[in-house]
Simulated scan of single mutants.
Amino acid sequence: MTYDLSPRPLNPAPAAPAMTWPNGARSAVFVGFDVDAETAWIGNNPSNVDRMVTTSHGGYDARVGIRKILELMDELAIKATFFTPGWTALAHRAICETMLAAGHEIGHHGYLHKLPERDKLDEAFEEIDRGFEALQSALGVRPVGYRAPSGENFPELLAYLARSGIRYSSSFRDDILPYRHAPHGADRGLVEIPVNFAFDDWNFGMSSRSSSRPLFGRDAVLRLWIDEFEATHAWGGVTTLVLHPQVSGRPMRWHLLRDFLRYVQTKPDVWVATGQQIAEHFERQDRDEN
């Protein structure tokens, strides 16, 4: 592959429009979970399928993590978006059905959580198709939201997602407001609900024997999340959470997440919404202004 390194904005999307959030809210909070389960450990490293202790990190999702997260969402009366790889839905159908039964949104997160690569378009597109097929088979849903497995994307994949019926993405890290991606030929660009890397719990609460990294305790993470949320709220943006049941479903981190979300709920002017709700609000505002 030849790489175009000419100086230019590498994301050609237009600037994010000013947002008026519903019901006089000053900012929005998007609670999103990536239900990777074992795919986090086997998608990009298939040999891990024979390493049961390594994959048991992901096995925590179905055994404990999802159930505890659903209990927390019920306690706080929050509807969240669960970005679910197709493999996870097929392997752990019963527990994934409980996410849907509780009224949460199911999002697309690939099939095997494989990193999409631009020089392997057929494989990248197959991951999308198999993900749709598995979610339809296991849960009877066809998602409208997508979060990139391993956090990567490229123009051809954005175009394929749009043609496949995806309406929004929540993967990019280049704004604090939703925006629309540049058009893909005749297809209108997806709505992007950008992510703040500071709210990815994997950065603070996941390690493994094969790639050791420090773990961060409650006080450090809670202070960081509150400070970042407060600043985003003051700027009128969207605080997008990238959470994983195999991390935030662990005992201490479950309490940490509960404390943070309780803090958010003390603010009377915050709209806590699913990705689909935020994308639909953006689309309505976009239509009204155009």
Rank of each mutant, 00 (worst) to 15 (best):
R209F: 13
H244G: 07
L222K: 13
S248G: 09
W225N: 01
D259I: 10
N203G: 11
L261S: 03
T240G: 07
G237N: 00
R250G: 00
M252G: 12
V238D: 02
E230N: 04
V247A: 07
A234T: 15
L243R: 01
S211F: 13
P245C: 07
G249W: 05
H255C: 08
D227Q: 14
R209I: 15
L243Y: 01
V247W: 03
H255R: 10
R213I: 09
L256A: 09
L257A: 03
V247F: 04
V238R: 02
F229K: 04
F260E: 15
F260L: 12
H255T: 08
R258M: 10
R213H: 12
M206F: 04
E228C: 07
L256I: 02
Q246A: 05
W254G: 03
S211Y: 14
I226N: 10
W235F: 13
G237I: 01
T232W: 00
T239P: 05
A234Y: 06
R223F: 11
R223P: 09
H233N: 13
D219L: 14
G205I: 02
Q246V: 03
G249R: 01
P214M: 08
L256P: 11
T240S: 06
G205S: 08
W225T: 00
S208A: 14
R223V: 09
E228Y: 06
R250K: 08
D227W: 10
S212N: 10
S210G: 14
S212I: 11
A234D: 15
A220Y: 09
R209L: 15
W225Q: 00
F204P: 00
S208G: 15
R218T: 14
A234E: 15
T232E: 02
R258S: 11
A231W: 08
H244K: 01
L241V: 01
S211N: 15
V247P: 06
W254H: 08
L215K: 11
A231I: 01
S210D: 15
A234R: 08
Q246F: 02
N203T: 11
V247D: 06
F204E: 01
T232H: 02
V242C: 06
L241M: 07
F229M: 04
R262S: 15
T239V: 07
R223D: 15
P214W: 13
D259F: 10
R209H: 12
G236Y: 07
S248E: 06
V238I: 14
L224Q: 14
P245L: 08
L222I: 11
Q246G: 04
S212W: 11
L243Q: 01
F229W: 04
F229Q: 05
P245S: 09
V247G: 05
R223C: 09
G249K: 00
P245G: 07
F204V: 00
W225D: 01
S248W: 00
G236K: 09
R262Y: 11
P251I: 08
V238S: 04
L257C: 04
V221A: 03
M206S: 10
G217M: 12
R258W: 10
E228R: 08
T232V: 04
V247M: 03
E228N: 11
E230P: 05
F260V: 12
R218F: 03
L224Y: 12
R213V: 10
I226D: 05
R258Y: 11
G236W: 08
N203W: 11
D259Q: 12
A220W: 13
W235A: 14
A234L: 10
L257M: 06
V247R: 00
L224N: 14
W235E: 13
M206Y: 03
F216K: 09
L215P: 06
T239Y: 02
S211E: 15
A220N: 09
E230I: 03
G249N: 00
